[in-house]
Design a protein around this nucleic acid. Structure first.
Length: 936
RNA sequence: GCGGAUAUGGUGAAAUUGGUAGACAUGCUAGACUUAGGAUCUAGUGCCGUGAGGCGUGUGGGUUCGAGUCCCUCUAUCCGCACCA
């Protein structure tokens, strides 16, 4: 019988599904292992060959771990809320739930064909009410907590309220946007609205007016990580800044823990660096500069104060004596108050022109130096000198305090600004020339700096901070670039908030009413007055309605994906998001596989929520993904035809330079090895029916090609389905692994797929005689066969342990080539071989396992063969003999010889003598069992 | 500008601790066989050279008996961040 994968593969997939072969249970004596893939968004386009790459790798690993005796959790689900289903709904009126269900079904169908060992009983979908009930519940927990910087964890807001009632907020050390101080008496006197506003400034998820990235084309706000190069990640639409009342997540509270937690994770340095960069910690100090003059101001408490202080953040307090001016962001609150009358017009003009520039223009405009003097002066806290105050758009209102102390000798931007406006540049570095450029290195000796003179930078920093603190004008401080994450989206197809409003104040819906399900609406568009789609819902359309109205926003895409790995542990629990005992059993994800594009989105948010849930005692670990591997993208290879401009004529690749042509993407299914199937091309579209072709000399039309991302619009999508149909799932699995290292980006190319397919046929032949009947020997295995097998066991184990799946495939090929050479049909040898192979090619392995006499049961829980080193011991070694490092010949010598004996034997050898040309060697290096090098 | 990654035959790639560079596969060349099959088998295939031999892992240097691997320099490509004070 031939290797008939079309029969074998569906047979085993049915058995696995019927028998629930891969069901994971908590009550097991085996050690646990959790292998997780980043779950997909089920798009309408279906899977292309790039999607399964990571899934295949994780499946191989999961199957390997099962064979090693682990209790493996290997689930799959769908991140099923998202924009495309909603946009389809807007266009067609079809409910996104229907589109999503159809897409999920298609995905499932495609995934099933590849033979994954998922426990489908644990499937989750973020868009199902049973799931998002708990997303809403976690939101409620966040709302009910604040971050205490003293206990360094999230605490209940009730604890904070008790403290306010008792002592006000003077002693509270929390992560908060609240800038005012109040006493207990004041707190108790505040009305409900005032209290709510203050509490919002502490809650871990909170409602606030904040500057958000508004995308008019999509009609929604976007998170920073959803914007790429100033335009929306989806669709590439422009984005502008807008002040809106929005839910946010106080992820800032976790900045330090998100940073230090990275050290213990087994992730690539590059992903860790991206997160470190995104968190952007800088250590320095805040310093208050008094503005010269008297001002009439009224502070919140009603007291009159006459002094204005400008607070700056600096990472270089040691350069305080180098300050020769200050710059405020144009949007800084104090600008108008301090501007002197003669500069009012200029300042107003500058502010206006700065506000007209979009964030993108401002970025593009980096080279142009602009700014405006306010006419005001600040008093240097140590020298008492008067220093000019400017505004300039190189200072960002959103970072630090929106104001900087400018030290032109130590900062290049300050230097350029000073040069441009003719401001004094003081040099405070010993033996450093600052006539051409600033001295930006954090090294050297400080001079012209009063009490800091003669100190090294590091010591000077310490002393400067001490002096600043002693003077009461500032303090050592750490700043983070990480911003709080906007959590509201003006969309339909997302989780509704468990929130209603009464008298303008937000209230949480009680747990017993959860989930708040998505209400039906007549259209999936914003209302005429710009409210989100949910505002269209009738009161009766809500499954629970309270107060004046429900929250109209929905949660962003990353809400559901921030905790889904926990739900797999206990997917059907109706009373908890996950049972603590089950979470304690499965613990962290041991191996997480997915793309690196989620570095600043999903991976950061999931870490944040995990830490929060840990703080609140719901789970016992505070990092979700212990080890992560980021698979590289598989790129498509697009084909082009070249249309002669203004004619229905196409010219072949090598002749195109003789014409004015426009390249057109052509469907890769019409092209084989760059050769266009002209007839099929003509029939593909009406307009090509009568097209003419200018071909190569041999009559072929050759297409051009380019490596690009796979996408429908580029007609370069290769689906896994076609390949499974042609070659089988086992071939596809092995071929995707054989393409190259998992982490690498690589273009898709089917050139080598025959090689892998032939390998499986060759394996099949080892079990069968010339007539196709199973023919196995039960004799003692030969020495050679044992050697081949055990070498393979060793290499395969090493390959799997370091996730080198491509070399694993090569090693199987080498093994089967050798066994074929040896004409080995030994049952014992082949039994171990199929077990080894089963993670990579499970279908054929199950079939051969059955042929080996295992009438019942599956290979999935067999024992991974043990490597026996003694079988590989060789009596002799063919020593490569190098002369001055160049390998010239090999001499076979017994392994038992000592270095000295090897040296003697080599020097006595006639061939070696020839290379020595009669000279005595200067030196002979012998590495026993490895190599000999003769230095002449 | 800052940070990270990568660079090896016609092609995808291998070489885990410094020790035979190019395994495995593909492509190509020549041949065999045939049930004409994306089959199987044999031989060859880094470059230059008829040959002996020489040269070869992006560039230039260094350490070493020995470097794809370690150190320094430069270049190219890709990714992330970016007036972050």
């Amino acid at each position: 019988m031939e290797y008939n994968f079309r029969e074998i593969e569906p047979k085993w997939r049915k058995i696995w599904a019927d028998e629930k072969t891969f069901k994971a249970e908590e009550n097991s004596a085996k050690p646990k292992y959790y292998v997780l893939d980043m779950f997909p968004y089920p798009s309408g386009a279906g899977l292309h060959v790039g999607h399964p790459l990571g899934y295949i790798a994780s499946d191989i690993y999961a199957r390997y771990k099962r064979l090693q005796g682990f209790n493996v959790l290997h689930p799959m689900g769908y991140d099923s809320f998202g924009l495309p289903a909603e946009q389809y709904a807007i266009q067609t009126g079809q409910h996104p739930a229907i589109t999503t269900a159809e897409n999920v079904e298609r995905y499932r169908d495609q995934l099933d064909k590849i033979g994954f060992s998922f426990d489908w009983d644990r499937e989750v979908r973020t868009s199902s009410p049973e799931y998002y009930k708990w997303t809403q519940w976690i939101f409620k927990q966040l709302f009910d907590c604040y971050y205490d910087n003293t206990t360094n964890k999230a605490e209940r807001i009730s604890k904070l309220i008790a403290e306010f009632e008792e002592n006000g907020n003077a002693k509270v050390n929390a992560c908060s946007d609240c800038e005012t101080l109040f006493t207990a008496a004041e707190w108790n006197a505040f009305n409900e609205k005032e209290q709510d506003t203050i509490l919002q400034a502490y809650r871990l998820t909170f409602l606030a007016d904040s500057w958000v990235n508004w995308c008019p084309a999509l009609g929604t706000v976007l998170a920073n990580d959803e914007i790429v190069n100033g335009v929306s990640e989806r669709g590439g639409h422009p984005v502008e800044q807008k002040l809106m009342r929005q839910w946010s997540m106080r992820i800032k509270a976790y900045a330090e823990r998100l940073l230090t937690g990275l050290d213990g994770l087994d992730w690539t340095e590059s992903i860790k660096d991206i997160q470190r960069n995104w968190i952007g910690k800088s250590v320095g100090s805040s310093i208050q500069f008094k503005v010269d003059g008297q001002f009439e101001l009224t502070t919140q408490g009603g007291n009159i104060e006459n002094d204005i202080y400008i607070e700056v953040f600096t990472t270089r307090p040691d350069t305080i004596f180098g300050v020769s001016f200050m710059v405020l962001a144009p949007e800084h609150d104090l600008v108008d108050q301090i501007t002197t009358p003669e500069f009012t017009t200029q300042i107003a003009d500058y502010k206006k022109s700065a506000s007209l520039k979009s964030a993108r223009d401002r970025e593009a405009d980096v080279k142009n130096i602009s700014g405006q003097n306010t006419g005001a002066f600040a008093i240097h806290p140590f020298t008492g000198e008067k220093i000019q105050i400017w505004i300039g758009d190189y200072v960002l209102v959103s970072y630090g305090t929106g104001a900087v102390m400018s030290v032109p000798c130590g900062d290049q931007r300050d230097y350029d600004f000073a040069k441009h406006f003719g401001i004094e540049i003081k040099n405070i570095f010993e033996n450093v020339d600052v006539s051409e450029a600033a001295h930006t290195e954090k090294a050297g000796t400080i001079a012209n700096s009063g009490f800091l003179n003669g100190l090294e930078v590091k010591a000077a920093m310490k002393k400067a901070i001490e002096a600043i603190e002693a003077k009461g004008i500032g303090t050592g401080k750490t700043n983070y670039r990480l911003r709080d994450a906007v959590f509201s989206r003006q969309r339909y197809w997302g989780e509704p908030f468990p929130v209603f409003y009464k008298d303008g104040l937000p209230h949480l819906v009680e747990d017993k009413f959860l989930p708040i399900t998505l209400p039906e609406v007549d259209k999936y568009l914003p209302t005429e007055d710009g409210a989100p789609p949910l505002a269209r819902a009738e009161k009766s359309a809500w499954n629970h309605f309270e107060g004046d109205h429900m929250e109209f926003n929905t949660m962003p895409g990353w809400a559901g994906s921030s905790w889904y790995f926990l739900r797999y542990m206990d997917p059907k629990n109706e009373s908890e998001f996950v049972n603590r005992k089950k979470a304690d059993y499965w613990k962290q994800v041991d191996l997480y596989i997915g793309g690196s594009e989620h570095a600043t989105g999903h991976l950061l948010y999931a870490r944040f929520w995990t830490k929060f849930l840990y703080d609140q005692g719901f789970i016992g670990f505070d990092e979700p993904f212990q080890k992560m591997i980021n698979q590289g993208m598989i790129l498509g290879r697009s084909s082009f035809v070249f249309r002669v401009n203004n004619e229905n004529k196409f010219v072949s690749n090598s002749l195109k330079s003789q014409y004015n042509v426009t390249p057109l993407h052509t469907d890769i299914s019409l092209v084989d090895n760059d050769k266009l199937d002209i007839e099929a091309f003509k029939n593909s579209r009406e307009e090509f029916k009568n097209a003419e072709f200018i071909c190569e000399e041999n009559g072929d039309y050759i297409c051009g090609s380019e490596i690009e991302k796979m996408s429908k619009s580029k007609y370069n999508v290769q689906t896994p389905d076609e390949l499974v149909e042609k070659f089988g799932a086992d071939t596809l699995r092995m071929y995707e692994m054989f393409l190259g290292p998992l982490e690498q980006f690589k273009p898709w190319d089917t050139k080598g797929i025959n090689g892998v397919h032939n390998f499986l046929r060759k394996l099949w032949r080892l079990f069968h005689d010339a007539d196709g009947n199973v023919s196995l020997s039960t004799d003692e295995p030969s020495k050679d066969a044992l050697k081949t097998l055990h070498r393979t066991i060793k290499k395969l184990t090493d390959d799997l342990d370091r996730f080198s799946f491509n070399t694993g495939v090569s090693n199987f090929m080498i093994c089967v080539n050798e066994l074929t050479e040896q004409k080995c049909n030994n049952k014992a040898i082949l039994t171990d071989l199929v077990v080894l192979l089963s993670p990579y090619a499970p279908h054929i392995s199950e079939e051969l396992w059955e042929k080996l006499g295992h009438k019942k049961g599956t290979i999935s829980y067999a024992h991974f063969p043990q490597f026996d080193e003694s079988l590989l011991v060789e009596a002799n070694h063919a020593y490569p003999i190098s002369f001055n490092g160049k390998m010239r010949l090999k001499i076979e010598l017994p392994m038992s010889l000592s270095s000295k004996e090897v040296e003697e034997a080599v020097l006595a050898n006639a061939d070696a003598q020839k290379w020595l040309e009669g000279n005595a060697p200067k030196k002979v290096i012998v590495v026993p069992g490895k190599i000999v090098n003769i230095v002449m």
